[in-house]
Write a protein that binds this DNA or RNA. Structure first.
Lengths: 345, 345
DNA sequence: TGGCGTGCGGTAACCGCTTTCCCGAGCTAA
DNA sequence: TTAGCTCGGGAAAGCGGTTACCGCACGCCA
């Protein structure tokens, strides 16, 4: 075992050790399947590689092959269970495909997405997945679209998770439809007077859920007063603050819909702190069915999105060759009624 | 703008466009600071790069420079809020250092860590962070240590988050001490009869928390019966199942300590399903102070670990040059008493 | 027996950068 | 005026792989 003095072991070292050329060593160790290598040479190469503890230099391979197996994943906030579940799905599927995941968390600053995307482009990723709501900002969206187009031109596959607002493969979350079904169910349960904690104004996900909810209420012949809609952060604290604002201002509702679960949990705390008994004093519903929140009391009525599956679907999408027209993968949302919204009949 | 026909724009293209050599273009665009370039040439290069929308090929740079700015992060389960919070901290700090994070989630299969580490080694990462409890399996730990040593020899910085069981930089979580303090507080609150949901037998984190808890009880003159300790998964469902097992078998306690919060939440559900009123019928305490779980009812007494800070600390550790002896960064645990453990006096 | 196809090992070009080294230009000082 | 600098541009040598291509050895068939 004649290890070179310098740091890492290269293919050349292995080839020397095995008494073959680098070409042969390469074919044995990282061969693309074409070209046979005689059995005895193969054994010698493998033995040498093992003896020297060889590990192929991925950047060098990327360069020689002209492509990597890196998948870039951009999320809004990895500490948010919504995104960490999606990330888990992406990573699970990536493993199956022998890809590795490079992750970026924009932690709210949507405009940073462009910077991260630029950095990511430098990695020459095989694919890029953008998870998280698009915004209503047209200009931003256009710039994003331009960046993504460049990535595609350079050979990367790209997919969005959220809304289909760009001509790109998308995992479509049934935000509108799910909220609509939820609203109908709540009306069926006898609720008539609603308030909505609507999240940030610019996030399409929040907007869609609000719009869908309104549509569902309309289906049931109920209207939502504008004064009963409050905007705020998409977070637990946002939910708390928004609920509190409504309580202080002029809450005239028997049922509050928070456009996601973490906000709903914040709202529940605000209601409690305000002395409202739950679930009797106020019905509360959320959206997402975050696993970690399944045990809050009262158990939360919500709309289930299979988040891991969402991540997996996105990864599978980008692993397929690009199609003529953008592919859409629609993810069903399912209403789950629990204790937080008791029937009024 | 004479864009080359082929896919991506290279530095050579930029140099041509600007009428300079690739050396000059390189110095302008990615220069390490040595070597000045005349102002007018600099402008031309920058203009050309912008016009062609040049993006440096990171693998090629990695190769030429002999190093990357990739930080590998291995976690047990990214969907677990414990790890996603740590990951958030790592990523936040990585951004400050201009590093990008490559993430792997072993989702429980501890033995996969070695495989992931091998893959990661191929990336020639600048640093590697292993987050998550080490196990009691000596053989596994030795193999892990060997792999990490190789990584270090190849120039990567390495850090562990959890226990200091390998001669490697470590962010040390005060599992034992935190649990000890918790136990003392619970005794101070008047509790005398305890049960513990101890998590998996092989995880050192779970062991340490159990051992610390026992020590704290001993400080207060209380002993923990072996029959009141039940082992199970480190998850919500594990907590539920273990609690249920104790309830069915022979629970003789007024206070249950689950070695982490998600288990505690599962335990609370199991207690409720079993008809035990909370918090009066049974006190429950957890560990970690998971943010998403701050709103469960009754609010959970727990031991706070500043998880994002843990991640940040690990990243900072690996960004520093290696020291003579392994560096340790101890993270304080702090007892937080809430409603789930009422005083008995 | 000679022509030819096939299997397979090796040589070397190339991937896109960084950086060393060379060299000419312009400046300073004797 | 010129030797000796410094400054800065460019040529070219890698970095560690992959793979097109070359050529040898062998077997087959006419």
């Amino acid at each position: 075992m004649t290890k070179r003095s310098s740091g890492t072991v290269t293919l050349m070292d292995v080839a020397h050790e095995a008494g073959v050329s680098v070409a042969t060593a390469s074919r044995v160790l990282n061969g693309s399947g074409t070209r046979q290598v005689r059995a005895d040479l193969m054994d010698r190469v493998l033995a040498a590689a093992a003896a020297l503890n060889y590990s192929a230099n991925a950047p060098a391979q990327a360069m020689a092959r002209g492509r990597t197996n890196v998948v870039g994943l951009l999320v809004h906030d990895i500490a948010d269970p919504f995104f960490s579940s999606i990330a888990a799905g992406v990573m699970r599927a990536a493993e199956r495909h022998g890809s590795i995941v490079m992750m970026y968390s924009t932690t709210g600053r949507t405009e940073r997405e462009l910077d991260y995307l630029a950095t990511l482009r430098g990695q020459r990723p095989r694919a890029v997945i953008l998870a998280g709501s698009r915004t209503a900002d047209r200009a931003l969206r256009d710039r994003l679209g331009a960046q993504l187009r460049i990535l595609e031109e350079e050979g990367a596959r790209v997919a969005l998770i959220s809304q289909h607002v760009l001509p790109i493969d998308t995992v479509l979350l049934e935000n509108r439809e799910g909220a609509r079904l939820l609203a109908r169910r709540l009306v069926e349960l006898g609720h008539r007077r609603f308030a909505v904690l609507a999240g940030p104004r610019h996030l399409l996900t929040a907007r869609d859920r609000l719009a869908g909810f309104q549509a569902g209420l309309a289906d049931g012949g109920v209207t939502l007063s504008r004064t009963q809609v409050a905007y705020g952060d998409f977070t637990r604290d946002g939910g708390y603050a928004t609920m509190r604002e409504l309580l202080v201002r002029d809450l005239r509702a028997g049922c509050v819909f928070a456009v996601n679960d973490v906000m709903a949990v914040g709202a529940i705390s605000a209601l409690r702190d305000h002395g409202v008994p739950l679930p009797g004093g106020m019905a509360v519903a959320g959206f997402d069915d975050i696993v970690t929140l399944r045990d809050v009391t009262p158990s939360l009525t919500t709309v289930r999105l299979p988040l891991e599956e969402v991540g997996t679907a996105a990864l599978e999408l980008v692993m397929q060759p690009r199609a003529e027209r953008p592919r859409l993968r629609r993810i069903r949302a399912e209403v789950v009624v629990r204790d937080s919204t008791p029937a009024l009949s």
